[in-house]
Design a protein around this nucleic acid. Structure first.
Lengths: 127, 127
DNA sequence: GACATTCTTTTACAAATGTACGATATCGGA
DNA sequence: TCCGATATCGTACATTTGTAAAAGAATGTC
């Protein structure tokens, strides 16, 4: 625990958070329904994960009827930034090139994707 | 634990493994010396991590004098593949494009990197 | 208003993780 | 051969993680 403002999340939590992001806002059940078929975990488990994410500051919730609707609390951009950076540091010592290289070599990204990226770089965003 | 042949490694372990890969082969002390300054953990801790990595099948060791020299046991390519895939699944639902996009937007990868990638894609490797 | 239904809260618990101390073994010298 | 310096081994232990059952509360329905 270095000096991280916000507690890191576990892999399982990460997946749940992603689903909430995807849905914008979601109840426990909605998250459960969104889990990939090869990953069936109990309703109660998802609930625990959501609660933990809220504790850690990633999510907040409000009530809709009896159900809790969870939604992002921390800025997604920032969370992704920290998470990717951390991953990169641990697996590649911080150098992103081997990662992207890996993706390219394994056909995970296509030519078109790359052309798109080029545009992104040429035209620095948000300026 | 789905049906993974080899036990997943923890973040801390991942970092240690990367260092061993980087050095090719290394004693505990050599790994310790390679840790980034902002991450100072005790000799004994590194030892434990190395031991655990060996147990899980990522490393093996042989003795050089009194010291153990650790080196890769599992195929690096494969380990990276699994690790990246898992990360991608959890944080981006498996889609690599947002990840690379993030890297591009944040100046983590440059124009040149991208041009290099293009070559990789155009010329499918190992064929 | 009693019930079944649907949610949340509380509580649990084994396994994994992060971190490290103390005891023991080994090696190179004096 | 005894000593100090190095290393490893065994062990420990508080947290976090992954997973979930059980108990309690709110709701819509006859």
């Amino acid at each position: 625990m270095t000096k991280k403002e916000i507690a890191a999340m576990s892999p399982a939590e990460t997946e749940i958070l992603r689903i909430v992001w995807e849905l914008g806002a979601a109840t426990v059940l909605e998250v459960v329904d969104q889990l990939p078929p090869e990953r069936q975990i109990a309703y109660a488990t998802v609930q625990t994960l959501l609660r933990r994410l809220e504790h850690k500051g990633y999510l907040k919730h409000k009530s809709r009827g009896k159900a809790h609707v969870f939604m992002a609390s921390a800025r997604k951009e920032e969370v992704i930034s920290r998470t990717v950076k951390d991953f990169l540091n641990r697996l590649f010592g911080g150098d992103p090139v081997p990662l992207v290289q890996y993706l390219a070599e394994h056909g995970e990204i296509t030519r078109e994707d790359i052309d798109g990226l080029k545009k992104l770089i040429d035209k620095p965003k948000g300026k």
